[in-house]
Design a binder for these strands. Sequence first.
DNA 1: TACAGAACTAACCAATTAGTTCAACAGGGA
DNA 2: TCCCTGTTGAACTAATTGGTTAGTTCTGTA
Lengths: 224, 224
Amino acid sequence: MAEKPAIRDSIRTQEKILAAAQVEFARRGFDGARVDAIVERAKISKNLLYHYFRSKEDLYIRILERTYETLRRRQSDVSVNGLDPLNAMIRLCENTFRVFVEEPDVIVILNTENLHRAKHIVKSTIIRTMYDKLSENLREILQAGVQQGIFRQGVDPVELYISMSALGYFYLSNQHTLSILFKRKLGAPENIERRQAHLVDMVISYLMRKPEPGDWTPALARGS
Amino acid sequence: MAEKPAIRDSIRTQEKILAAAQVEFARRGFDGARVDAIVERAKISKNLLYHYFRSKEDLYIRILERTYETLRRRQSDVSVNGLDPLNAMIRLCENTFRVFVEEPDVIVILNTENLHRAKHIVKSTIIRTMYDKLSENLREILQAGVQQGIFRQGVDPVELYISMSALGYFYLSNQHTLSILFKRKLGAPENIERRQAHLVDMVISYLMRKPEPGDWTPALARGS
DNA sequence: TACAGAACTAACCAATTAGTTCAACAGGGA
DNA sequence: TCCCTGTTGAACTAATTGGTTAGTTCTGTA
């Protein structure tokens, strides 16, 4: 009632459909999602949905693209550039975690895409070129840290990025089962805060560790 | 043809159904899975499936329980007890990762359960009591490490366990999208090996780090 | 003000789904 | 011989699904 009628506004309508679809896909995954539910949520007729989108799959791909856009945009949101390597890394860790916390849909949609073995993402050239800059950026921060003598050498940026994401992502994506297993509400704000601190601590500890003689080193322990 | 006919063996038959169901659920998730596909894979008639299992959901819950049993059994497979704290931790990290690598079905099934917000697990008391021992065990290892002066103090066992799992789980569960994004086949054996080393390195670095004066500490950086 | 085209709807369709029914057969122990 | 259990096959249903058809507003503009 409060909002404008906004009748016959094709852009607005498509936005409504996309928003409704995101909720539905994020709630039930691709196969669980129902076109009728999207239609109902968007308060439009079913045919209108098919007027703007070829198919359920087409709609899903659009949501997937939006998801990656959100992810990348929000990750590089706060300017990491200009910060010293240590604070840049901390910031990057926190940003990455914050996206997952504040946009929980992202997690389910990425999981769904992995369930389907990334068959949709392959088609989308937009997404595929999106991450070219990230590892380069990360490499620069790492290099600066090494030169300043605060980070260890030989860290693989991709491996590090995966770890950075993993520590927050898994905590959130599996929070429902983990909460039951460990009898702790992982979604509670104070636990989210704690997780963030832990996650940053872990990444920084890894980066700042420079094994001394007598210390344990991975190569030594694994005999490779 | 090579295998015994094994006719009229109700246990065997149920095993066959469960095995087929696991493959199907792990491949397509709960909603994507088709009962007919399970029937076909198990090479039995459809009514036989419903003779042994009440419903698709019932079958899924059985698979879920089996999954957690596998997980816990294989995790404590190799005796961690008796090892010194450092090697116990390394072993635990490696075991956890190895389960995910060698039983990839586990990942998809856990993801599926989280998509459904753990609504099935809640019903299963078997699973809920399964993890009571784990955090206690972990606590002991950590305590021993602290007493020997090699681990830092105040590590939360649950938080650590989640991190340990996360570093391997996310790498594998999201390998399809990540492989495309970073143009690197994460599933390739040499990359799996590298991941394992990285993961252990990260956990151990975290545990062994004892911040010295002038070093960065999480509390300091976050101003809490 | 006429009208082309875009925005939109309600009802419908064909295919698929989980789950059922029923009649029958095979093997093995009593 | 009889009977119980394990098993099959195919046809069936009731509900749900993604997608379509045929038609009705609305709106910018010549």
